[in-house]
């Protein structure tokens, strides 16, 4: 084959490979959906999503407890993580000296690389007892410590590096000249950040938060180990919960033993997939959309 022939053939093969990634996403969604059809056709969708009756033995599949568990744990994590991460990102991009930045950034990258199971055992060793013996008694509440709050704390730390690194990049992309203008008008550093930098970067910062949220929704092992895994709609943050990923991880072994049970678990996976896909597209599309509007 001559050189032009090699060129054509190679790219033709690779194009097929690239197209098959798109196909992979559709395939995963398709397989999970087709597996969910039995449960979707035998239980009305409103019951699936909004009933909290979870009795697989009797054929009652209400996902409310799991959806509520996922949302509460994720929200808890975001409440802790968003302010801390954003303040850290602002500090690193606007205030910190080169030396501090160069010392802190590698540590944040390292935090991003720690396996989730390590966060899980840390949660069991440290967070769970702390919540049980220190935090809960302050509110006069009895808890095992395996609860929404513990899972939220562990998850918040896992989300730190994602929000920090994306937000910091967005903040640094704000043109120097805008800051100089604000300083020349007599603004303090914080006033510049508040009125100029954050305003300019707001959409990107929002995208960083959404990306953190997506990561938190699907996190399995660390949450599974500290959240208690009780199928109930948690009343307070000191109650145990049972998020969707834990449901799949704990029960895949028995899913063939009951009718519709496998279908129910695949429906749970489908819900996760759709939620994550929606939020990711939102986070990636939003900044560009808004930039186009502003032009």
């Amino acid at each position: 084959m001559d050189r032009a022939g090699v060129d054509r053939t190679a790219w033709a093969v690779i194009r097929v490979l690239a197209v098959s990634c798109v196909a992979l996403l559709l395939l995963i969604a398709g397989v999970l959906f087709s597996k969910s059809i039995p449960i979707l056709s035998s239980v009305p969708l409103t019951n699936l999503l909004f009933s909290s009756k979870w009795f697989p033995l009797r054929g009652e599949f209400g996902f409310m407890a799991f959806i509520a568990g996922t949302l509460m744990v994720t929200l808890m994590a975001m409440i802790i993580s968003v302010p801390v991460s954003l303040l850290t990102a602002i500090y690193l991009s606007e205030y910190a000296s080169m030396r501090v930045r160069n010392a802190v950034k590698p540590l944040i990258d390292l935090l991003a690389g720690i396996p989730s199971v390590i966060f899980g055992i840390w949660g069991v060793a440290f967070v769970v007892p702390a919540v049980r013996y220190r935090v809960a008694p302050m509110f006069g509440i009895n808890t095992t410590g395996y609860c929404v709050l513990s899972a939220g704390i562990v998850l918040a730390i896992m989300v730190f590096p994602i929000i920090i690194s994306v937000a910091e990049e967005v903040l640094r992309a704000v043109p120097r000249s805008l800051r100089e203008t604000a300083y020349s008008l007599g603004a303090t550093r914080w006033q510049t950040v508040k009125h100029v930098v954050l305003k300019e970067a707001s959409v990107g910062v929002l995208a960083s938060i959404i990306l953190g949220f997506t990561r938190a929704i699907g996190e399995t092992m660390a949450v599974l180990m500290v959240v208690g895994n009780v199928a109930q709609v948690p009343g307070t943050v000191f109650d145990a919960a049972y998020p969707l990923p834990s449901l799949i991880a704990n029960n895949y072994g028995e899913m063939m033993s009951l009718p519709l049970y496998d279908s129910a678990l695949m429906f749970a996976a489908l819900v996760l997939l759709l939620a994550v896909a929606g939020f990711t597209v939102l986070a990636r599309t939003l900044p560009r959309r808004v930039a186009r509007l502003q032009q």
């Binding site: 996403l25 996190e219 399995t220 990923p245 799949i248 939020f279 990636r284 599309t285």
Partner: peptide, 18 residues
């Protein structure tokens, strides 16, 4: 790139289930 970003965000438990 958008599709790859979505795939990056899909939780590993979903790949496991698939």
């Amino acid at each position: 790139r958008r599709v790859l970003d979505v795939l990056c965000g899909v939780p590993s438990i979903v790949y496991g289930a698939f």
